[in-house]
Simulated assay, not measured.
Amino acid sequence: YVLSLLAGILAGTIYGVIGVHSPAPPTIALLGLLGMLAGEQILPLARRMMEGNKLNAAWREAKCSQHMFGRLPGGKLPDAATQDQRSP
């Protein structure tokens, strides 16, 4: 999160130095990014629904929540994932 914020500050500083306004207001840019993430999930979700899965099951199998929202702050990793991160 910090690196993302710093990259945004750097880009904003560069825009300010060269006298260019950012291409989109932040809210519009964030909605566009959310739309891109949602759009990436349409095909995997549709494929699973065409295989006969209901929407909820297709959503889980396609791991849409994990892709769109990532591991939320304060979320706990499963034990296997925690062990994988400790291993060199």
Rank of each mutant, 00 (worst) to 15 (best):
Asp84Glu: 13
Gly12Ile: 13
Ala58Val: 00
Gly16Cys: 06
Met68Glu: 10
Ala81Cys: 02
Ala62Asp: 03
Arg60Gln: 09
Trp59Leu: 06
Leu6Tyr: 12
Leu3Ile: 07
Glu51Gly: 02
Gly16Arg: 15
Gly12Phe: 09
Ile28Pro: 00
Ala80Pro: 07
Leu30Cys: 03
Gln41His: 01
Phe69His: 08
Lys76Ile: 04
Ile14Lys: 08
Ser4Tyr: 13
Ile9Cys: 09
Thr82Ser: 10
Leu5Met: 12
Gly70Asp: 09
Ser22Glu: 12
Leu5Cys: 07
Asp79Gln: 05
Leu10Ala: 11
Ala24Glu: 08
Met49Asp: 03
Met50Leu: 07
Tyr1Ala: 13
Pro88Asp: 11
Met49Gly: 01
His67Lys: 15
Val2Lys: 14
Arg47Trp: 00
Arg71Met: 06
Arg60Asn: 06
Gln85Asp: 11
Gly32Asp: 10
Ala11Val: 15
Leu33His: 14
Thr27Leu: 15
Met68Ala: 11
Lys54Arg: 10
Leu43Ala: 04
Ala24Arg: 10
Leu43Thr: 03
Met50Asn: 02
Arg86Phe: 10
Tyr1Phe: 08
Met68Ile: 15
Arg71Asp: 06
Val17Ala: 13
Ser4Glu: 14
Pro78Leu: 07
Gly35Phe: 10
Leu5Ser: 09
Gly35Cys: 10
Ile14Leu: 15
Ile18Cys: 11
Arg86Thr: 09
Pro73Thr: 03
Trp59Val: 01
Arg86Asn: 13
Ala46Gly: 02
Ala81Trp: 05
Gly70Lys: 03
